[in-house]
Amino acid sequence: MADPEGGKPTPVGRRVVLGMLGVGVAGVIFGDPVSRAIGDVLAPLTAGDAGIASLVPGADNFQLYTVVSGYPAPPPDYRLTVDGLVKRPLSLSVADLEAMPATKLVHPFQCVTGWVVPDVHWTGVQLGHLLDEAGLTEGATALHFTSFDGVYTESLTIDQARLPNVIVAYQMLGGPVTREHGGPVRLYVAPMYGYKSIKWLSTISVVDHVEPGYWEDNGYAVDAWIGRSNGL
């Protein structure tokens, strides 16, 4: 078919579309080191987790997730409850947690969808220590976590919970856990994807079976080992 508008036509439109698709595919395969390099360059600007620089793609920025309206405010008389299949139910203030043996970690926060914040500083109490304090009774095989946002839940097996780098964190990024990041107290499960690290933690119930949490009901893996779980 002759070109309706005369001249010598070149298929520039197709080249633009295919060129962008090529850049897109290359970006998926090779974008990880590029974004890490951008993160390193911007690190002085994004430190402290604020400012417009944190909106730059690849910057070491947290995507602040909340599944309810806004970031929930902590109740003024905040207590962390440990109950269920335990000998001694616990009700702990932040000061109570701070008085326990502290564990400090420097470890990335890795989202299952790919975004990652390297070298995050965490301070908290090993979850295993809380379980020892409460004392498990017979039939205890799993933990069910609830958030005071009223919606989000999570789960771990007792074995997973006893890993040394699974902590109930009251500090991250060099200060108390902020409201946006799930303060005053959140979970940090270092070996698993970020959705396991429930924010605004209010209750840890010791139970007899694993009950899938909020995102797991939407198809994500219950055993969310970073780089290993295939979720299928």
Partner: peptide
């Protein structure tokens, strides 16, 4: 095309290496 492709990698994450997911999120 690029947003459909990268969005699909993010939405169905388990079929791809982790570094591809990081690249897809970035793109």
């Amino acid at each position: 095309l690029v947003m459909l492709m990268t969005g699909s990698v993010m939405h169905w994450p388990y079929y791809w290496p982790l570094s591809w997911r990081t690249g897809a999120t970035f793109m």
